[in-house]
Amino acid sequence: MASLSLTLTKPLRNVGLYVLLMVKAFASLGEFRLYRKNLFKQMVRVGIDSIPIVALAAAFSGAVTTVQTAYQLVSPFIPKRIIGSIVAPSLILELGAVVTGFILAGRIGARFAAELGTMRVTEQIDALEAMGLNSIGYLIVPRVLAGVVMFPVLYVVACFVGITGGIGVAHFGGYLEAGEFVAGAREFFQPFDPVFGLIKSVVFGFAITSISCYKGYYTGGGAEGVGRATTDAAVLSCVYILVADLLLAIVLL
């Protein structure tokens, strides 16, 4: 009976634990000197080091979207520039943020969970606490903050490279001229679209880093526990990216 109620309330307890962790992290936000050095290290790891893989994925997303849209739009009544009208907003609204989010969920989520989990399992976090350091402020705040700040940068990179890749494939693949593509993209461009993308990227950045830090920070059960935390962090990040994507689209569009 007791174990049943424990099983039933486990998701709620997890949510509570996660919220408490975030509240503590926000409370430590003022102790800038504590995490300043670590913050920039994490920013380079999250942001700068991720640029090549994000650019690669975005370029391929843009190129594939362009080719497939061109393949689908075979009616002679639809002007070719509509390909640009479809590809550019797709990248700006959805692919730029989500593809980057999935890449970061695998690349950063797993790394953060493994780092923190190992520190937890080898009792380094306890040691920090014993030394009187605020472990949350020292370990979690810079990581989450790095995600929130650097994810929009990666989003901009993804959009830029993705649209450039789309234009490149359209132009050199003989699907439509670069000018046509740009004209089509301009036709249905709304200034709110990239702003919405930026909001998404901030939310995704927060979701990925906070979930993986939570999973790593509360790891238990030795080496196996670290492995489980790493997997959980990557999978949960992806799931919550999708959930957040849908919620934001409903709320903001």
Partner: peptide, 26 residues
């Protein structure tokens, strides 16, 4: 070193964002 890299990345992305939005707004 790290601060410089981050700063360059952030400033460049802000410039790309603004120029890109104005470009697509024609």
């Amino acid at each position: 070193g790290n601060e410089l890299k981050v700063g360059i990345a952030v400033v460049l992305s802000i410039i790309v964002f603004i120029v890109g939005v104005r470009y697509f707004q024609d």
